[in-house]
């Protein structure tokens, strides 16, 4: 569904991504694991059109995304739940959600209202806080809000960048349960994680990204879990030998 080929993204002269190729298949949960600084967030921002690739291609259902503005990428059905959630702190939970459906606010009022209700059923905590400013929410609630906001765009593929970051274990479990449910409803998921243990439990396929390159691709179980964890946190032997 999403095919990433030879993506190079650089900050000035420093190449953060040095030719990344990977794929997220329709209906699956694909995980991207890797240590801090490996380029995971850079890759997510490049795919979503926030950063611009120097070379390479990203295709969503055969259509090229590189060079398209982020609004066009959202319109084609790709939504990203960014690292650190990035909710809008000084507008209400309701308006955060409505902003997620920005591109069809004028044309599809009924559909937006319907989707808003669907998110509130999925995340009852958000309904309780619907008129509160998002900045007053707990970390876990903000993460749910960020996920719900992305879903308001009716994505065909949902990218999630470290949704478990900084959250209590119980909340992390809830987030992963939500990802699992969404996938069961047919949403294709590309999940970036450092929490390899949790990620491998729900992933259909996973990749390791180390120092701007994909160093492993396989199904969970193809690699010893402790090796995956080691490489996901520290960057392992695979990368240092390159």
């Amino acid at each position: 569904m999403l095919v990433i080929e030879n993506i190079v993204t650089a900050y000035g002269k420093i190449e953060a991504l040095r030719g990344v190729s990977m794929e997220a298949q329709e209906g699956r949960i694909t995980c991207l694991l890797g240590p801090n600084g490996a380029g995971k967030t850079t890759l997510m921002y490049t795919v979503a059109g926030i950063l611009h690739a120097r070379r390479g291609s990203v295709r969503l259902q055969g259509q090229e995304l590189v060079g398209k503005p982020s609004s066009e990428i959202v319109r084609r059905g790709l939504a990203l739940v960014p690292e650190n959630r990035l909710t809008f702190p000084e507008v209400s939970v309701r308006e955060n959600l409505i902003a997620g459906a920005y591109l069809r606010l004028t044309r599809d009022k009924a559909g937006v209202a319907e989707d808003l209700e669907r998110q509130l059923v999925r995340f009852p905590r958000l309904r309780e806080r619907i008129n509160q400013d998002a900045g007053t929410l707990s970390g876990g609630e903000q993460q749910m809000l960020a996920v719900a906001r992305a879903l308001m765009a009716r994505p065909r593929i949902l990218l999630m960048d470290e949704p478990s970051l900084g959250l209590a274990p119980l909340v992390v479990e809830e987030i992963f349960r939500t990802i699992h449910e969404l996938n069961a409803e047919g949403v294709t998921v590309l999940l970036v994680e450092q929490n390899a243990h949790m990620a491998l439990q729900i992933a259909h396929h996973f990749y390791l990204l180390e120092q701007g390159r994909i160093t492993f691709s396989g199904v969970p179980g193809a690699l010893q879990e402790d090796e995956v964890i080691h490489r996901a946190y520290l960057g392992g032997s695979g990368a240092s030998s390159h």
């Binding site: 926030i50 982020s70 609004s71």
Partner: peptide, 19 residues
């Protein structure tokens, strides 16, 4: 809504499709 969210979180505004 766009003017209010763009100032608070420009990257997230872009991710919502706001120019």
């Amino acid at each position: 809504l766009a003017t209010r969210v763009v100032s608070q979180q420009p990257v997230a505004a872009l991710l919502c499709g706001i120019s």
